[in-house]
Amino acid sequence: MSDNFVEVQGLRKFFNVGNNRILKAVNDISFSIKQGETLGLVGESGCGKSTAGRTIIRLYEPTAGSVTVDGVEVTKLSKSKMKAQRRNMQMIFQDPFASLNPRMTILDIIGEALDIHGLAGSRAERKRRVEELLELVGLNAEHASRFPHEFSGGQRQRIGITRALAVEPKFIICDEPISALDVSIQAQVINLLMDLQKKMDLTYLFVAHDLSMVKYMSDRVAVMYLGKIVEIAKSEDLYANPQHPYTTALLSAIPVPDIEDEGRKERIVLQGDLPSPINPPSGCPFRTRCPAATERCAQEAPELRETRPGHLAACHYA
């Protein structure tokens, strides 16, 4: 057995979008995360990050592939075993305004986690536990009786975090937890997540659509394009030596603070739009927008291979 806490193998999620058309939202991705580690998952909007996250914790049934969390193969679990396994893995959602039921109080939203798994013996204990959790994420215990609409985006996101923590999970998928928040609030939430990680030895899959925040959070980063992982490496290594042209383009989009550096680095603007995941290009999925694409890229799909020690990229020319 490896010491990987999370192991994703050949995961696919296809949606049937009618008229016999198949949308390959997640198309054969594999990666692993060690205990206590954060893996960043980046890619532009629509590349399948949320679908990947939702399939990993089995909110969607995978089309193919396997997911192992804490030594348990999740994709094959029966209903009752899956319910128990859900205590191990949780998700924090992208939209803090849609992720809390507007008809329920905070007490009930968080309390539901306790109810489902029978974690609170009495109503008083339930309330006490919820208040404890609220304080843990920096909210007031008295907030428990309020409804979601009374909170700001940042506060709501903290409530979402509290709900996930209520079942004491070891693995949390953070699906762009800050992209809907004000810039001034983003750092608070990030710091909270990192604090909690240290305190509770959490393992994160941290999804984002640009590289700057991911870099700050993650030990390793996977770059996703059109349902596939095109590069995966240690954070510093990925930033210092991007191997895939798509990663290079994403990195060039991060503004650099000092002026000298700015001059050195030229911004690569990608041509065209993300191709449709219903009709992906032949060969390399990125070739239609790649500045270095050749004949070979159209013929042959590049495999994810080690181009530097511990650094995988899916490009013929990496």
């Binding site: 939702r54 914790i57 909110l59 899956m82 319910k83 128990a84 859900r86 205590r87 949780q90 998700m91 959602f93 992208q94 939209d95 849609a98 992720s99 809390l100 039921n101 939203i109 539901e112 986690a113 489902i116 798994h117 979402g160 709900r163 209520a166 079942v167």
Partner: peptide, 10 residues
């Protein structure tokens, strides 16, 4: 997402 969150909780 609140329905998905509830499903994720089990």
């Amino acid at each position: 997402e609140y329905a998905l969150a509830s499903k994720a909780l089990g």
